[in-house]
Design a binder for these strands. Structure first.
Lengths: 231, 231
DNA sequence: TCATAAGTGTAACAATTGTTACAGTTTTCG
DNA sequence: CGAAAACTGTAACAATTGTTACACTTATGA
């Protein structure tokens, strides 16, 4: 395990004790491959026969990280699985290139070994499924947001999603506070920052919301929800 | 099994023989619940403790329940799993309401039973993982498309994705043929049909592509790829 | 074959968002 | 505290896309 020290934090065995992990790894057939900065690790169209775990370095790709990962061509840092969703998909080809952004070490576990690990370590199976499920959930909500056409709709959707469940439908003047500032919110929505600011002003003018240091105040939940338009 | 005839075609056991499926189902603890049209099957925020398989009817998922403020996300036909990605996710709460679009029958398998089925039927496990992986891949490519801002970029991305792998980067005049007409393509891109037609005209005018009965002719692959902008 | 439906090309105008620039406010940190 | 940085509000203008309408072409089926 000394050769691959960085994989401890990998979400696939995040909740394992050191002994469990040691047990899991030592009984598994795998290879570790090093890449120089700029090397192509996998090419678009390659068939995915291994579970790839980035142990060192970072790679450049258009894939998604587990949570908060953006659509952009982003650096996936180690330790992180690289292609967990392609290994068992019916179409198991990489849709993108994966390129070493710096010197990398990649742990490569054959598909049948992964299946064996599933049967021997139910906890690993759970984590694997949970990991992919998390990605699905992240992508779903991201896609939901993207299908809303207008900035007004996106903001309304987002603010509504922040309403505590204890509120009733008729509650007025609900205060919600995003954990992002306006600039981050604009990037999250995929819109230009001044455009978001303009929309906020308009919604304030139309008495849908109020803004202040405490966050956003939703004046009329029903009216706000009605301003969500998906097409 | 007579009570739940429609689940045969469920993708989770699409490749099972009738005997295998019979074996799988008969040894499993589950309940079948009927809903009338309009019934709420699950509510946003509910913790997902079961694998839900829609055996009869169809459902729609909505983001918000209050009258007037509903946004339909998707219609799901039977037989289809309803929440396979939420059952094992770290945040295992439904993000949406699920409402019966017509009279429905839902097969409900407890989480621990699903785990037991995984260990007893590796084939079922494979299908379950494949199913979720397929969803992830579908969502990824959909989201990738949605993040391209311009119609020109979307079309360029799509046409490039249709280029056969045998073509080299320098090949010119590649003919690709979408399996959708212009109207369907516009809906696929999430844009208005006349807007797509206008963009096609502009790209023809700019000598990026040609159109004809045989499909699209990509005049210059490199130039086309450069017109993909993700922002 | 011919009437009808479906699909496509185009134009004028409206609506929305992006871009750029700048001023005012708030936060951070030496 | 006070300067610098980060953040926010706003405006003018450009770019893109949506909406609506209509003519034309192609496919379909009685």
């Amino acid at each position: 395990m000394n050769e691959i020290p960085d994989i401890y934090g990998c979400p696939l065995w995040a909740d394992f004790t050191e002994d469990e992990l040691s047990d899991l790894i030592s009984g598994t057939r795998y290879t570790v491959i090093s890449y120089k900065k700029g090397d192509i690790i996998v090419t678009q169209g390659d068939i995915c026969k291994y579970l790839y775990i980035l142990a060192k370095g970072s790679v450049r790709t258009e894939m998604f990280t587990e949570e908060g990962g953006t659509v952009t061509i982003a650096n996936i840092p180690s330790p992180h699985p690289l292609a967990s969703a392609f290994l068992f998909a019916d179409n198991n080809r990489f849709p993108v290139d994966v390129i070493a952004e710096e010197d990398c070490a990649v742990m490569r576990i054959p598909k049948d070994e992964v299946l064996r690990m599933f049967t021997l370590y139910p906890k690993f199976l759970s984590r694997y499924i949970a990991f992919n499920s998390n990605i699905t959930n992240f992508l779903s909500s991201k896609l939901q947001l993207m299908t809303i056409r207008t900035i007004k709709g996106k903001l309304a959707w987002y603010l509504c999603s922040l309403i505590p469940k204890t509120s009733t439908a008729t509650t007025r003047n609900i205060i919600v506070k995003p954990d992002m500032n306006q600039t981050e919110l604009a990037r999250f929505f995929g819109v230009a920052r001044p455009s978001l600011a303009r929309t906020i002003s308009e919604m304030e003018r139309d008495n849908l919301i109020k803004t202040g240091r405490e966050g956003f105040t939703i004046i009329n939940v029903t009216a706000l929800k009605e301003s969500i338009q998906t097409s």
